[in-house]
Write a protein that binds this DNA or RNA. Sequence first.
DNA 1: CAAAAGTAAGTAAACATTCATTTACTTACT
DNA 2: AGTAAGTAAATGAATGTTTACTTACTTTTG
Lengths: 198, 198
Amino acid sequence: MRPKNLEKEEAIRSIALQIIAEEGLENLSMQKLAKAANVSPRTIYIKYENKEDFLIKLFIDEVLGSYEKAVMEKFNPDMGFAEGVKKIWTNSFRYFKENRHYYVLMQYGKSSPLLNKAYQDRDIKEGDFFTPIHQFLQLHMKAGNIIKLPVAAYRAILFAPLFDLINEYFEHTTRPKQIITDKVLADSCEAVVNGLLV
Amino acid sequence: MRPKNLEKEEAIRSIALQIIAEEGLENLSMQKLAKAANVSPRTIYIKYENKEDFLIKLFIDEVLGSYEKAVMEKFNPDMGFAEGVKKIWTNSFRYFKENRHYYVLMQYGKSSPLLNKAYQDRDIKEGDFFTPIHQFLQLHMKAGNIIKLPVAAYRAILFAPLFDLINEYFEHTTRPKQIITDKVLADSCEAVVNGLLV
DNA sequence: CAAAAGTAAGTAAACATTCATTTACTTACT
DNA sequence: AGTAAGTAAATGAATGTTTACTTACTTTTG
């Protein structure tokens, strides 16, 4: 039996991310993708059921999955609060700096109903997607280290600014001066942490 | 001369927002829109040059423009820091609660390259889009009330969590219990403010 | 040679956009 | 007050193109 050519699978996924980042999800077509990945359209349909299936797998496995791995590196739920949050910030920043194309699809996950639904389904089926972070937050809440809020609010306060700053970082890569320096990032992280400490 | 039917123009825009919110920007087609708005496809092309022109105007005029108005209500740059930020939070929350469909296109503005570019162009051409907020932040920075950071970082820390919470609010409207209450919102707002105070 | 991987060349449906025409109203003249 | 000319608004049907997806065939391996 003829074995799968993994290079082709990889090409399909990475070129898709590139098109999405450059032209937007709304301009990604299967034919365009096949042509750009130097593959017949049918090849994509051997690997994925249909466009929806492809996009969901791209989003969940490729982007969310690899981000989760990267963000959890050297993180554990028993860390001190400031230290743990900082670790997540620096892991995330490094990850997206190295994988710029992933960032855009990640953002689409917050707007596109298709991807949003896929994310929620996955979250429900597998328990919380980022379980260690959830534990970490619960732990510090119960220990009385931080003010009492729903976990969703902790996530919003601690990590939403990070994504905004990463976006700002990318927008400045083409301009003469980068304003999102490591120091700005560290200071911002400290600020959101201080806001939650009791 | 036959007068313009403003209801039709309004229908086109509001139905477009509805389709985007329910099916995603990637599933909005001009023909589908025309049919749903009970209008001939040609009618849309009398009012807008092409699809791109339509989407950009929808995003800038309808969504960003009306949000800017709503968020600035009873806000002025001389307000105290905590008070000013709180005003923006409550204005924003009220606005999106009443205009749920606007929220999704707003989010697309952060992912779609087309809308993102339109936003930046507008921002550059007209000076900062939210000038009073910009002034407000500069003022408090110069007065030494808050830690020194680029304005982009203030915006990220102070307002990115708000959008996350609004999203969370919408996701809980269909569930038995709403976790994003006015109290959670107020406490979160206080937390992000406290993080920036010197 | 069995069998899955891969392909080139399709398909019908949906796409953005345009054409030729009709509609609805104002205005200027009776 | 009645009406016909003038005009922008609005349209339904059609344009050629692109879409997601398939069919019928070839290649590449164990």
